[in-house]
Design a binder for these strands. Structure first.
Lengths: 345, 345
DNA sequence: TTGAAAGCGTTACCAC
DNA sequence: GTGGTAACGCTTTCAA
């Protein structure tokens, strides 16, 4: 029983133990493990010992010796504990994760409230070759976080921030959200809308600001000079959006509601429906992201499609290149978005 | 320029460099960093040097010395590259991640196809104190993966697998999916349905099997002995589900379609709608998960609510307890689910 | 309170 | 092809 317990919890075998078991030197085992040239019959003995002792290389020792972590960290600022449930974030992380895995790099993931960003465990220690970040919060806070990242003296990828890369250590990867806003604005202008209400969460995201900005540009440049109002919502949650929209619509029904994300657009649609408004006849609705929600509703949503997975993958490619070559080939990458017209506008 | 470049890419400062800069020994700096008692005026000098040199502890060295990784890995088997976009998985990982972060543990995340599960980078090296896994694929394959995890000789949490824990190193954490199926079956029985079609993805998940099993039990035990058919769908994607349902309905309209997940239920609903069927009058529909999709549709979906975030958190609590105390306090945990009736059935 | 030395598991380097 | 040695950065131990 005590023996069995020891059995279960025993420390992993080391190179030295394998070497003793196989009757060779530590270096020979190391060479076998790393595929260096070793006499076949020696290799066989060593392989047998490795299998028998269940040897697995100790990454900490290897990282220390090589001064390389084979690891990237990503810190995601968000007030929602369910930060990975955001369909945009989950796709960026999936793309990044898969690319890194394909090269045998590890990905460390940490979500953290924007207020505590700089305290993220991952940032306080040297444990990754490079870092990735998704920022949110007021512009000034994000700028401070960016400066903090810069001071770490490590390669960093920042997703979805519109500022240009401030130094050779930092690369920015984003999609053209302003263009997305413009496309939507032009689309609505063609529909002869007179006024637009932009719904955005209280928590500030650079991408949302860009979307709003692009929308405003397109509307103001349209032939009819369409009016744009913006409405803050306490959070992106269905309840909050629904409740705000339900309070606003009786006061005035705009020509269209554009929400910062599709999930917010769905909630707006539901609020309109609950009040007996016909979409798009009485009120048009549109959102951003284009993952799958747009087609869950009736009518289906007009949206702007995000290349979120591809952003994550591109971030992975750039960061690994940076780790290996010592420099970023591109410091500012902007991926294209596309308007996808649905039935809601 | 060359100096600037060196500045940017220079190796992180070490304890030794800080010690020299502050004119003290390495041990004193180490004591300062770890909050051990140090003379205030010494501490001040050291703190200044730490700030000036931007010192951050090297985790590899610390892990090696302490033979502790302060890190947990999670391997997620899925054929979808966008594995984190699954709303269930993203919530489990969020809950796990936040709990671990709160204790300054790192979380390594890797998605991998079930066929390649045992080759996951994370599993092949000693780099985490413990591992978590979400399995899928045929039962025999999952059993093999479980055996592989057991052989690693490390603490492991397996989510959403119905087998009992096979050893002291492995704890199972799941929700009561069979009960969820039963609740849904009883609900439908009350609606006087005559037949039910269960929609499930080709890729096998233990949770889906459990849901199907519970549903079958409840239906067969009902007063009217309701018939249950199951229909495989190539994938969980909207297109695949919609296309299969669109092909099936003209042949025969069941009393209800129960889908393995809400997103599949939405697609079934859309297919029914496209064919002019009234839900729930002509056909009832229900799903599983209860995240937010259930209310995106018209009519809203009947669903079984999952405590996915809580499962992730519980997994974190158990694994940390196991790391620290050497044993699991519970090896088999089953969280409760709840039926949430919507308009669709 | 402070410091010197040993060692965690690995790999680069250099002998043989 | 094989093996001995030193070193990566840190913390435990023991001595001053």
């Amino acid at each position: 029983m005590s023996a069995a317990k020891n059995q279960e919890n025993k420390a992993p075998a080391t190179l030295r133990q394998v070497a003793e078991a196989a009757g060779v030197s530590v270096m020979t085992v190391s060479n076998v493990v790393r595929g260096k040239s070793v006499r076949p019959e020696t290799r066989e003995r060593v392989d047998e010992a490795i299998a028998r002792l269940r040897y697995r290389p100790n990454t900490s020792a290897r990282r220390l010796r090589l001064a390389t972590q084979f690891s990237v960290g990503i810190v995601i600022a968000d007030t929602d504990p369910n930060y990975l449930a955001d369909p945009f974030i989950s796709r960026v992380v999936s793309g990044l994760s898969n690319y890194l895995s394909s090269l045998d790099y590890t990905l460390d993931v940490q979500g953290i409230s924007p207020a505590r960003f700089e305290n993220a465990t991952i940032l306080g220690k040297v444990g990754n070759d490079a870092l990735c970040a998704i920022l949110c919060g007021p512009r000034e806070l994000r700028r401070r976080h960016l400066a903090h990242l810069e001071r770490l003296g490590q390669p960093v990828i920042v997703f979805q921030e519109a500022l240009p890369s401030p130094s050779r250590n930092i690369a920015m990867v984003r999609q053209d959200d302003a263009e997305g806003g413009r496309l939507l604005g032009q689309h609505l202008a063609r529909k002869k809308i007179r006024s637009v209400l932009f719904l955005k969460p209280l928590l500030e995201w650079c991408a949302v600001e860009q979307r709003e900005h692009g929308l405003k540009m397109a509307l103001s440049q349209s032939a009819h000079n369409i009016e744009l109002d913006s409405q803050l919502v306490p959070s992106e949650s269905f309840e909050d959006v629904m409740s705000v929209v339900t309070q606003m619509l009786p006061i005035r029904v705009p020509g269209a509601i554009v929400a910062a994300t599709d999930s917010m657009a769905v909630a707006a649609l539901k609020a309109a429906e609950a009040m007996g408004l016909q979409v798009p006849k009485d009120l048009m609705i549109a959102g951003f992201n284009g993952f799958d929600f747009w087609r869950y509703t009736r009518p289906t949503l007009t949206t702007v499609v995000s290349p979120a997975y591809e952003m994550g993958k591109l971030g992975g490619e750039l960061i690994v290149e940076r780790i290996r070559t010592g420099r970023f080939s591109r410091r500012n990458s902007v991926l294209q978005v596309a308007l996808q017209a649905g039935q809601s506008s």
